[in-house]
Design a protein around this nucleic acid. Sequence first.
DNA 1: CTGAAAGCGCTAACAG
DNA 2: CTGTTAGCGCTTTCAG
Lengths: 340, 340
Amino acid sequence: MPLITNRSTGRARMQDVARRAGVSMITVSRVLHNPEKVAADTRERVAQAIRATGYVPNLVAGSLASNRTYTILALVPTLTNPVFGQTLHALEEVLRRHGYHLLLGNSGNSPQEEEALLATFLARRPDGIFLHNTSHTPATHRLLARARVPIVETGDLSRTPADMVVSYSNFAAGKAMTAYLLGKSYRRIAFVGAVQRMNERARQRCRGYQAALRQAGVPLDAALIVEATLGPRQGAEALVSLLARRRPPQAVFFAGDAWAVGALLECERRGWPVPQRVAIVGFDDQAMAAEAIPPLTTVRVPRAEIGRRAAEMLLDRLHGKPVVPRREDLGFRIVARGSA
Amino acid sequence: MPLITNRSTGRARMQDVARRAGVSMITVSRVLHNPEKVAADTRERVAQAIRATGYVPNLVAGSLASNRTYTILALVPTLTNPVFGQTLHALEEVLRRHGYHLLLGNSGNSPQEEEALLATFLARRPDGIFLHNTSHTPATHRLLARARVPIVETGDLSRTPADMVVSYSNFAAGKAMTAYLLGKSYRRIAFVGAVQRMNERARQRCRGYQAALRQAGVPLDAALIVEATLGPRQGAEALVSLLARRRPPQAVFFAGDAWAVGALLECERRGWPVPQRVAIVGFDDQAMAAEAIPPLTTVRVPRAEIGRRAAEMLLDRLHGKPVVPRREDLGFRIVARGSA
DNA sequence: CTGAAAGCGCTAACAG
DNA sequence: CTGTTAGCGCTTTCAG
């Protein structure tokens, strides 16, 4: 009788290992998942049989039987913006140490796309869900509720999380940075951010900017709000177009460092002194910010820490521990450097 | 009798849908996977039952029965380097359109870690494997062979792919860029790259650099080869330390744009004219390269195209089409700008 | 500490 | 075009 009996795949199954070790399947399963519940010598025999057969457990079968997939769904707006990678990286690292793997999806900043993705991903029965977005369609909310698994959202400190949320507040950060500029006596301040229609984070940062102006009694000027695609070229272009206005801004708040660094380089090219001719600030404190000329004043956001905490919150819930509070503010910090 | 009978999860199962529509389970399955094989009116009744019950298929069960998971394993060195995100993004986009989802893992540039990850991920029975690395441990090779699924590697144009490979050649790119510098009459050329011990790509770029020098009859100088962590600060530091040498280089080839841009900024700060005082070139043609002062001469690599082709190669094989050749060179391009 | 029986929810293979 | 039967490979539950 061949030791490996599975015809369809040619791979050893748990039954093959069990036979070879002279035990039942469940004992093999225990050696794999609860070795302490098996006698040392039995354990050793089984381990040997596993090695001999080259047995690789089939987690698909295990998941069906146990109703747990050890899989976390992670939906991010895009992978081409490095900030999401920073959070994902930390998330993955922590989850992996606890036996969970990441299922990855790109929602492309579209709530409709997010909804469609979620619907198809739920068929995989993830044990938990991570969303780098807090603004969903009604159908998405329904799907999330019906999934009955822990969910952690990030991207913004939503007041109405589907389940848990860990983030900083984009509104507070936008407001704080604008207040910082106002504190430096800049009055005419422009705002450059992502397209707001489909991006809650962009919206909140801009709302914070407007709130700070309002609070300081500075009249809002819609002409000073620019929407752009993220990138240094786009930052340079936004700056030039803003400074070409009849009443140009004294400061520009770029809601992303890539824009700001591009703008700084444009100033250098044109011989516009920063912050004298125009003050410039960014958002995220990416590595380039500190190196720019002049060094970029920006908002530091704990990207990796958010990923780590998100993983911990999910794991706590998966281990049956309640998570309180379900809304965690990891804050931000204005990093004042030379550009404003 | 309740329409939803599954006690354990409270979720509708295919049986519930079938009963409600007055058909057998297999008909429901067909409506889901081969709707054209079901009569229009039956199809409509089933669709209605699906909506009424809020049925979400269980792909775990489906995978066990069909022996296909519609899952592709993607192992990348890290997510914090944006270049991997660019490839992953394209990979995900194409695969998703064909019903495949991505299982994500970080190998952290360690072959041992890659091996460990692969071993645990194989338990999930991915239908295909994408590796952003071409240099594996013997055990990894064994695991890959036993997985019996299509595999596509990238990161370098390996001559001995485990299965398929789509990439550009780091050796050729390193050599071409060095030849470009030699063609501009720079003789003393330094090379700054990632730590080579665990990084095949870094190694190949450096080998290409050395090959070009050798071919031009320029003596190699080990003191001109620097290993560093990727980032603008590290680029600036490497540059300064190189130019402080007794016999400083006339040109520095940074095997990553982030280093090169940091070095360019350092030159600006110190008033060192580029390329007169020192020529600087990068690698990858990231968005910042074109904006730098002076604009950065660099190597453009088709990151997204690689992800797209990798997906297509996997899909072809999953659809039973043979892929020839199994080694695809997507090339690179030297983008000559002002910095050298 | 170990085992037997009974599924998990779905699809493949064959019928009709 | 639709249905029946028989698993996929594992874990759960309950015994011993």
